[in-house]
Design a protein around this nucleic acid. Structure first.
Lengths: 205, 205
DNA sequence: GTGCGTTTTTGCAATAGCTGCATGTTTGCG
DNA sequence: CGCAAACATGCAGCTATTGCAAAAACGCAC
């Protein structure tokens, strides 16, 4: 389905904005780049920027909604019997190639977050959303309410594993070695080993 | 030591600003309250606001720097042999009375964070700073680098315990029961039990 | 391919957070 | 009292963000 010229054009405009923004951010830095600059470079009116993104920050994280939706449905639609852990693993497995392809952008994003505290906080908000998704699912798995201690501990630690995985990518990037899906999933598996131990310890208290 | 008139006056101005801001936030909401409003209510020039707080968000979290510094030194100055966990426990113990006294404000803060996403992200940044402090100390305890998996898992889960403790306060507030220091520390102890189990599990892998 | 209803883009104006700078005030001290 | 440092203020300016209404682009019907 060709989706109509309209949709395609909108998509293209969106990409132009993203590319222009990211290029300028990379060249001049986040703060030094203004919405007007981006609009000019993307050949749209400044006002138009805001019909594509709700804020300057949102451009930097333009692709997280997609990823988040994928995680949400992976968790939501998991067959009964499949744990949140399994679903998470599947999600990472599915995302992996994308992540590799977008590695440069991820590095830039990280640099920008170091540069601008507001951006870093925004990213924190994204992580928080992920953690909430995980928390829901994990609470179900454990058969406890989401605000109980154990689900919280598990969700937080799982989140930590995810950021550790991010770190793995960075390391690999630093040594110009491609990150392997295996080592990434191994991090997650280690984390799960840890969690199992913790859960058990708290179980027979 | 009277600290001089200057210091006292500055302190008083600061308090005026905080009180005015919090009152207005509570009455009209965060977004609907402008810096100009706050300045007027606090009897200072709008420009003056920014020599006391770097941003509107910062007023809402006016007391966290104090708490964070206390935690930082509790961790830094802990006698050799005392674990990060012990130091954290001591910190909570020391903070407890303050927290009880500031409970209303904490509730308001929470409400405001629900109302404004930017504020929520700001709070996320605060939590991130706490977690970093913990991570450093925990990594030392475990004898591993701060970016290794285990310290990260432990720090994140510890952080989760702290937010769970926050939840405890809220629950108590909801039932108009004063939160007891005992139950609060019990949450932390449970979390540590959990972590011990996790650490061991990952140890003899 | 012309006309028309719908969707998008744009321009304009206004608000609000935040910052630099220059100037007037207040305070601490000799 | 008189001066230097610290503080408060006023002002101008920049940028993000939003509402609103006019203009342009699109897609479909005829």
């Amino acid at each position: 389905m060709p989706e109509g010229l309209r949709e395609r054009k909108k998509q293209r405009t969106r990409e132009q904005i993203v590319e222009a923004a990211m290029r300028l951010f990379a060249e001049r830095g986040y703060h030094a780049t203004t919405i007007a600059d981006i609009a000019t470079a993307a050949d749209v009116a400044p006002r138009t920027f805001f019909s594509y993104f709700p804020s300057k920050e949102a451009v930097v994280f333009h692709n997280v909604d997609r990823d988040l939706d994928a995680l949400a449905s992976a968790l939501r639609d998991r067959p009964p019997g499949e744990t949140a852990y399994d679903a998470l693993r599947r999600w990472i497995d599915a995302m992996f190639d994308e992540w590799i392809a977008e590695e440069d952008e991820a590095l830039l994003r990280k640099r920008l977050c170091r540069e601008d505290e507001g951006l870093a906080n925004f990213q924190g908000g994204v992580f928080a959303r992920i953690q909430e998704l995980l928390l829901e699912a994990i609470a179900q798995d454990l058969g406890e309410p989401p605000d109980a201690l154990r689900p919280r501990l598990v969700a937080a630690a799982t989140m930590a594993a995810l950021t550790a995985i991010e770190g793995t990518f960075d390391d690999k990037a630093a040594q110009r070695t491609p990150a392997g899906k295996g080592e990434v999933l191994a991090v997650l598996d280690d984390a799960m080993l840890f969690l199992r131990g913790g859960i058990d310890a708290l179980q027979d208290r």
